[in-house]
Design a protein around this nucleic acid. Structure first.
Lengths: 290, 290
DNA sequence: AACTTCCTGTTATAAAAACAACAAAATGGA
DNA sequence: TCCATTTTGTTGTTTTTATAACAGGAAGTT
């Protein structure tokens, strides 16, 4: 009865706390592409999760099945039931919630934003931007505003690991003119500006431009006035069912850029990261093992 | 493998005419509850269709598979692809770029993260968390670590507008014990902790717990040790083709929570937002029109 | 640091499943 | 009706697959 309305996926998640490390690793791997992986042979599943075969056998028994075959049989039964059900309700993200639930509505909106943003992005321009950011001879300034300063900071934090000569400037602070004193021709400004667009940011961009710096702009679909000064503009759709805009898509682009710049500079980045790890190890701030 | 875009079901139907009586009987039985029956053992399938086992083996070879195992493997592959594609049918996201371009690969990974995260989330728990955060009689503490502090700050910034009594604590700072002095029973801690998990954050959580506070945890799929203390854990998948993890999915959840809390508190939020707007107008920091 | 307890992987065994070879049955044409 | 051909099922072998028993190793405790 209790397990009648419960999917095996639910059951796995519910037991997650009672599982050991290797078992949990396996459990997550099963959920990763559920239910397909669980329908294959035991050995393949074990290999895919990087655990030994007996671990699989032990886990399914822990979950209450007689053995792996029993587990598979129930998986198939579940699959059969799901396909049979009137309309496969696969049009929601959080299947446990109705489609009107905010979780589903919000996710829909964000996926839409991603789709539309990526659809109109120019890969060449994006690659160029990555190249500019990766060039170590250019000093890199990262500029955020009131809301966007967290995004700027996220980008800054990673760039700091990847390369030297990075500066984080907050346009809302009144100290930013000081930073500009050092800016020289060929330096790169990565500027974040979404509505409502900030006057300070625009002024900053103008001055950077006047000094011969390159400007890369992250903005929204309506585009900040800075875009007229920018060499490369990356605009993201930010609409969401909320009183605020969504930064998730911008985040995606930022992270993609981080990844791209990182591989362009990989030799150096690798070294810097290792050094950083060593330093962290010494501080004992972090736990060594997951 | 030659007919990449053709499902196995299509293939069976197409070959239906070239099959013998017993084989056709079997084929129809497979289609009856497709694909579940085909994923079980050969003997069971044969019995279900009232044919002998070798008939099954012969038919799948006739359909072009090396053997029954091969047939099953392709069925699983098909199932895997089908589950993945609510939206991922989109072959490429940035159509102007080849599918191997990082823009497409990274976006694929993030969409996958979103799908899997939402699939595992418990809407009830999420709603509960929103409720806790929205309750104004509880002081709200927001805690971030080394990497997550930008996320924490993003959340904090919005909460500040929505409600009073919000505090942003950085666990990497050594001043956090001071904040805990004021924490009292029933207060709420929203804690961000992704790998590598931070010892300070864990200690902070322990002390918050000791003081009778509620804990809501944003973490990754491996779950920070804090989750054993947390009242509600929201785990996000963070895998990306990068040397770093992706925070895009976490961002999505945070924004959804912001939106939810905002509508729970709408009457007050509205007022606060208007006041804020007025204040901004006076500073002339922002441009009035887009 | 020594001990205990609980995990986890390796090896080995038992079960099961898939397939090949053959024999029986069915079909179709003269 | 008989024969040739195709189809189908039975039996038995080989391979694969799941699990039990064991032992090394990790983590945590005293």
């Amino acid at each position: 009865m209790s397990q009648a309305s419960q999917t095996i996926s639910d059951r796995i998640q519910q037991e997650l706390d009672n599982l050991t490390r290797a078992e949990r690793q396996l459990a997550l791997s099963i959920l990763e592409n559920y239910p397909a992986s669980g329908l294959g042979p035991l050995a393949a599943l074990a290999k895919g999760a990087n655990v030994s075969a007996p671990t699989v056998a032990r886990m399914v028994q822990k979950l209450g099945y007689k053995g792996y075959s029993d587990f598979q049989a129930e998986l198939r039964e579940e699959l059969r039931a799901k396909v049979k059900s009137p309309i496969a309700k696969h049009d929601t993200w959080a299947e446990a919630a109705p489609s009107e639930h905010l979780l589903n509505r919000f996710t829909d909106a964000v996926i839409d934003n991603i789709r539309l943003t990526l659809g109109q992005i120019d890969p060449k321009a994006f690659d160029e931007a990555c190249d500019l950011v990766a060039t170590q001879t250019r000093h890199l300034y990262i500029v955020g505003g009131r809301i966007t300063h967290t995004l700027a900071e996220y980008f800054f934090m990673h760039m700091q690991v990847i390369r030297a000569d990075v500066t984080h400037v907050q346009s809302t602070s009144n100290t930013w003119p000081h930073y500009l004193l050092n800016a020289k021709e060929g330096d790169v400004f990565v500027i974040f500006d979404v509505r409502r667009y900030e006057n300070n940011t625009l002024k900053l961009a103008e001055m950077a431009r006047a000094r011969g710096a390159k400007i890369i702009l992250f903005t929204d679909q309506w585009r900040s006035p800075v875009h007229q000064l920018a060499d490369i503009t990356l605009s993201c759709r930010i609409i969401a069912p909320s009183a605020w805009d969504s930064a998730a898509t911008t985040m995606l682009l930022i992270e993609t850029m981080i990844s791209s710049v990182q591989s362009l500079n990989w030799d150096e980045t690798k070294e810097r990261m290792e050094t950083l790890e060593d330093m962290f190890d010494q501080t004992k701030l972090f736990r060594k093992f997951i």
